[in-house]
Amino acid sequence: MMQDEAIVELYWQRDERAINETEMKYGKYLLKIAENILLNREDSQECVNDTYLKAWNLMPPNRPGVLSVFLKRITRFVSIDKFRRRNTSRQKASEYTIALEELRECEYAEDSMDAHVDQMYVTECIRRYLNTLPMEKKNIFVGRYFYMDSVKDIAGKMHLSESNVKVQLYRMRQDLKAYLMKEGGIEL
């Protein structure tokens, strides 16, 4: 397998082998993320192809430090975008929909935080919240709500039982809600 730096260099040199190398090295991981969100093989493959295209358009000027995260983030956004454009009434319960329903526990009324506050600030709050957690909990949260892995997969990767992962996720959601409500009006 080619090293990430070499693959990025291929992108910068506008060498089309970059796409093939990316697919060989990260194709199955990207497909897994897309399938976790879309629960549809064909749509997922389409999102992965869109990921390659966007990566091609983004490098240069981008020179990502961690190519895998860079690609997975693109796949995540593209897949969520596609998910939202689909007819929601016909959607099956993918890991994304389940994770989204879980995150509804973190919802709260707008008046507790200024309505103008949006993603950047929420991202900052979540980042700060995650930095208060030990490594294991942080990884569970990221695995579930960024990579959209199932509880079973997370339990396997983290050497934990599924019930343990579920309990930890539940507690983190409760803590995150409290954290967001608390930080909404306080200078950080």
Partner: peptide, 21 residues
């Protein structure tokens, strides 16, 4: 705050938080 916004915000987390997993 909606769950969709939280989900989108998670998508912008820094690399350093995502690396370990």
């Amino acid at each position: 705050m909606k769950a969709e916004m939280i989900m989108d915000a998670i998508g912008y987390l820094d690399e350093e938080l995502l690396l370990d997993y």
